[in-house]
Design a protein around this nucleic acid. Structure first.
Lengths: 218, 218
DNA sequence: GCGACTTATGTCACAATGTGACACGAAGAT
DNA sequence: ATCTTCGTGTCACATTGTGACATAAGTCGC
C-alpha cells in the first residue's frame, strides 16, 4: 500500500475520532463541520471529501457491516434457508466486531454512546439501514429464486434479521457497556428472534393458518 | 372552529399538495422550499412554520398513523397479548386509510409514488419510524409489565409489526396501484407475518429451543 | 534524480435548508 | 371601540453541501 493511501486512511480515522469526541463532548448539533475540520487541521471542504455529510460519520459502522454481510451472504451454500444465511451474515458482523482492534472497539463504543444520547441519529442510522436492507433483500431474493420486487418473504427475512441486530444494539440509557457485553446482547437478541419464528417460516412452504384476531371476525 | 384554524388547515393542505405535486413533477432534490412557498403564495419562512423541514412533508402520513396506533394500543384490553394488540393498531391504520376522503387518498398515493421514486425518502420515513417505534415499544412494555429499557421482546414486537407494514407498503417500481390494492397488500403482508411467528412468541413464555446454526457449532 | 502524470487538498463562490428577531396586520375577546 | 393574540412577511444569519479551479504532494517511467 502506497504512502498516499496510508495517509488517506490516517486522515479518515483522525476525522472520525475527532468528530466522535466532539459530538460526545458538546453534542451533535452544537458541533459544526468547521470545528471538526479545525481540530484535525484540514479545510471543511476536505471533510466532505472523506464523509459525504456530517451524518455520514455515524454511518461508518453500518457501511462496514453491510460489506461483511453481503460478502458472507454470497458465500453461503445455495440450498441453505434464507434466514439461516442471514444469521450467519449477522454473526460474521459480530465476530468482526469482537476481533476488532482496541481502537476500533473504542470507536464502536463511542458511536454507541453517541446514538444513545441522540435518538435523532438512531433514526438516520436506521435510514441508512433501509438502503442496506434493499441490497440484502436483493441477494436473498436471488437465493430464493424469487423476484425481489414482489417476494415479500425476502424483505421480511432481512427486516426481521436487521431488527434483531438493531434491538440488541440498544442499551438502557446511561449504561456504558463493554464491547463484549454489547456483542453478547446482540447475540442473545438474535437467538431470541430465532426462537420466535415458526420453523420453516422463511422457506415459503405453506404454513398452517394461525388464529388471527381482526382478520375475519371484525 | 374559528376562522383562524380553518385558514391554517387550508394553508397546510395547500402546502402539502403543492409540495407533493412539485416533488413528483421535477424530483425531490430539484424542488426548493422557495418554489413550494411560491406556488402557494407564502414566504419560505412560513413554509417552515407549517413543516419543520422539507423532509417533514414526507412524514405527514407517519405522524398520523402513529397517533392512531398509540390510541388503539391504549384502548386494547389489558390481558391481550402484545402482538395481537399491535395487529389491531396496524389494522386501525389500514381502516383509517380506506375510509379516508378521496383527497386524502390521492395524497397518500402521491406520497407512495414519491417514496417509490426516491429511496432516500424511504430512509427518512423509516428514520421517523424509529421514533415511532420507541413510543410504541414504551406502550407495549407497559402492557407487558416490563421495563422498556431492558425488555427486548417489546421492541421486537413493535419492530416486527412495523416491518410488515413497511414491507407491505412497497410496490414494484413503476406500479401505480389503487388505494385499495395497497391496503390489501399491507393486510396480506401482516397476515403473512402473523403466520410466520411461533404461537405465544410474544408472551414471554419459555419456548423450546430451535435448531440454530452458528450458535453452538462454530 | 528528472519530468510527466495523477490525485489530494485549499480557496473561492454559491445554493439551499433552517432559525431567531422584529414589525405589521388581521382575527378574536371584552 | 379597544386591547390582545397570533399568523405572516422581512431581514439577517449560521450551517451544510457542492462545483470550479489552482496548487502542491505523491507516483511512475526513464
Amino acid at each position: 500500500m502506497g504512502l498516499r493511501e496510508r495517509k488517506k486512511e490516517k486522515t479518515r480515522l483522525a476525522i472520525l475520532d475527532a468528530a466522535l469526541d466532539l459530538f460526545l463532548e458538546q453534542g451533535y448539533d452544537s458541533t459544526t463541520v468547521e470545528q471538526i475540520a479545525g481540530s484535525v487541521d484540514i479545510s471543511p471542504r476536505t471533510f466532505f471529501r472523506y464523509f459525504t455529510s456530517k451524518d455520514a460519520v455515524a454511518f461508518w459502522f453500518h457501511e462496514h457491516g453491510e460489506e461483511i454481510m453481503l460478502e458472507v451472504l454470497r458465500s453461503r451454500p445455495a440450498g441453505e434457508s434464507p434466514f439461516v444465511s442471514m444469521t450467519h451474515a449477522l454473526r460474521a458482523v459480530l465476530r468482526d466486531l469482537q476481533d476488532s482492534t482496541p481502537e476500533d472497539a473504542q470507536r464502536f463504543l463511542k458511536l454507541r454512546r453517541l446514538l444513545d444520547d441522540h435518538p435523532h441519529l438512531v433514526g438516520l442510522s436506521v435510514a441508512r439501514g433501509a438502503e442496506t436492507e434493499r441490497h440484502l433483500a436483493t441477494e436473498i431474493a436471488a437465493r430464493r429464486g424469487a423476484d425481489v420486487t414482489t417476494d415479500r418473504v425476502s424483505h421480511l427475512v432481512v427486516a426481521i434479521a436487521m431488527s434483531s441486530l438493531r434491538v440488541g444494539f440498544e442499551c438502557p440509557p446511561g449504561r456504558r457497556p463493554e464491547l463484549s457485553q454489547v456483542v453478547q446482547q446482540m447475540e442473545e437478541t438474535l437467538e431470541l428472534v430465532e426462537s420466535m419464528m415458526r420453523p420453516g417460516w422463511d422457506t415459503g412452504e405453506p404454513v398452517p393458518p394461525a388464529d388471527r384476531p381482526g382478520s375475519g371476525a371484525a
